[in-house]
């Protein structure tokens, strides 16, 4: 008897197929389905370990402050300009 598909893997595969299916072949999608099933197993192993509230993500984050004083009359950053431009909002 064929194994019952894992519902989580089915749902996650559907997400990938929905988003990228148009650029993938049937064979590639079949391979991706197997990979997603493997990823669900991988996640299951992670979820099986209990952590405490104090177990923080193990990576550095630091509040950022530039060493130089910003020029308030300067233009916004390219990213900001792009965002503002797309919305058509004036600079504050």
């Amino acid at each position: 008897m064929p194994e019952t598909p894992n519902p989580e893997a089915v749902a996650l595969f559907a997400l990938v197929a929905n988003r990228y299916g148009g650029r993938l072949t049937t064979e590639q999608l079949d391979e991706i389905k197997k990979m997603v099933e493997g990823q669900v197993e991988m996640a299951r192993a992670l979820r099986a370990v209990r952590l405490t509230n104090a177990d923080e993500p193990f990576q550095p984050f630091a509040a950022y402050r530039s060493d130089t004083t910003p020029d308030r009359s300067a233009l916004a950053s390219p990213l900001e300009n792009e965002r503002l431009g797309s919305k058509g909002d004036p600079l504050p």
């Binding site: 990938v16 391979e31 991706i32 997603v36 990823q39 996640a43």
Partner: peptide, 14 residues
């Protein structure tokens, strides 16, 4: 050419 697409299904929580 296609393996990375599968990884889009790894959840942020995991």
């Amino acid at each position: 050419r296609f393996t990375p697409y599968a990884r889009e299904a790894i959840l942020a929580h995991d």
